[in-house]
Computed example of a mutant assay.
Amino acid sequence: MDSGNHTTVTEFFLAGLTGRPELQLPLFLLFLGIYVVTVVGNLGMITLIGFSSHLHTPMYYFLSSLSFIDFCQSNTVTPKMLVNFVAEKNIISYPECMTQLYFFIIFAIAESHMLAVMAYDRYVAICKPLLYNVIITPQICFWLSAGVYILGIIGSTIHTGFMMRLLFCKVDVVNHYFCDLFPLLELSCSSIYINELLVLVLSAFNILFPALTILASYIFILSSILRIRSTEGRSKAFSTCSSHLSAVSIFSGSAAFMYLQPSSVSSMDQGKVSSMFYTIIVPMLNPMIYSLRNKDVKLALKKILDCNKHS
């Protein structure tokens, strides 16, 4: 292949969500509001769990970890997108692009597996309540959380490492609002067969495996709930599980749509919409999903607010 068709890429141009100038300011204000709600919601959840002694249980430990992941994911993608809404040129340097890709993949993989860990925690709590404290020990909580981040780092290192080996053409416009895998692969002059294969294989593991774990957990949970004679007990179990299932459905569905198909099949315009769910919408919704229908979280918030009033 003629080396003249290649260039040493130093920066990319991000196409963003839309090329229509009249929509830039309204979209900036919309996503700024979403970003503020996301940051406040997730930091608030972490703080609330940290300061409320009765929330120091495995379930809320995992929820606090999920909030941390969502907070980091939002900060990986959204600030740069907000800057691009008001900047004349949506430029991102090559090192900054690879760094954004690296951390985005870490937290995307970590979220997928953390949701599976939370489903397993609910399975043990509902199906094996007498053994819960024996199975879900503080040490197990730590290693499950550590495993989530280790899987994220391994997956991200593989993807980013193979991405950095590619040569890029002079066409350097990334058809996305951040540096994602498929939009970058579209710009490559090298063979991307290995990269696409890695995306499909690792995505199958990091999306389908957690999804199947969650599905299996909830099949057992549902059968246990249906055996509960108390209407109140059954309602409480359903309430706890429905919150988690809502978060799982939105995240896994949008991620599967984006990554579990070849780049030649997927449309980048559809991909932008799908990506918005797991990079922007889900991190904002998770604190609301887990707090609005959770009596323990409401009680903890009420106690803190009452303490502030009295002080």
Rank of each mutant, 00 (worst) to 15 (best):
residue 266 S to A: 11
residue 298 K to F: 09
residue 284 M to K: 11
residue 222 L to C: 05
residue 34 I to L: 05
residue 233 G to K: 13
residue 123 Y to I: 04
residue 308 N to E: 10
residue 212 L to T: 12
residue 129 P to G: 12
residue 140 I to N: 02
residue 126 I to H: 00
residue 26 P to E: 13
residue 159 H to A: 09
residue 289 I to A: 14
residue 263 S to N: 03
residue 210 P to K: 10
residue 35 Y to K: 13
residue 255 A to C: 12
residue 107 F to Q: 03
residue 78 T to L: 12
residue 74 S to H: 03
residue 244 H to M: 15
residue 29 L to A: 05
residue 166 L to E: 00
residue 131 L to K: 10
residue 167 L to Y: 12
residue 147 G to A: 02
residue 141 C to W: 05
residue 232 E to T: 08
residue 269 D to E: 14
residue 21 P to Y: 10
residue 178 F to K: 02
residue 102 Y to T: 03
residue 48 L to G: 03
residue 165 R to S: 08
residue 23 L to S: 07
residue 258 M to G: 09
residue 218 Y to G: 10
residue 5 N to I: 11
residue 176 H to P: 08
residue 220 F to K: 14
residue 151 L to Y: 06
residue 214 I to E: 01
residue 151 L to V: 14
residue 209 F to W: 13
residue 276 M to E: 00
residue 86 V to Q: 12
residue 207 I to T: 07
residue 227 R to E: 03
residue 139 Q to C: 13
residue 68 F to E: 05
residue 73 Q to A: 01
residue 209 F to M: 15
residue 248 V to K: 15
residue 83 V to R: 03
residue 311 S to W: 08
residue 82 L to M: 14
residue 6 H to C: 05
residue 41 G to R: 01
residue 293 R to T: 14
residue 180 D to G: 13
residue 240 T to Y: 01
residue 78 T to N: 01
residue 281 I to C: 11
residue 244 H to I: 07
residue 238 F to E: 04
residue 139 Q to I: 12
residue 13 F to R: 11
residue 68 F to R: 12
residue 164 M to D: 00
residue 207 I to F: 05
residue 105 I to R: 09
residue 64 S to F: 13
residue 58 P to Y: 01
residue 149 Y to I: 12
residue 291 S to D: 02
residue 109 I to C: 04
residue 159 H to V: 10
residue 8 T to S: 11
residue 31 F to W: 01
residue 11 E to L: 12
residue 75 N to P: 03
residue 50 G to R: 13
residue 229 R to A: 06
residue 157 T to A: 07
residue 205 F to M: 11
residue 219 I to F: 05
residue 129 P to M: 07
residue 180 D to T: 09
residue 67 S to G: 14
residue 90 N to D: 09
residue 277 F to H: 13
residue 200 L to E: 14
residue 44 G to D: 02
residue 130 L to Q: 15
residue 77 V to D: 00
residue 132 Y to M: 08
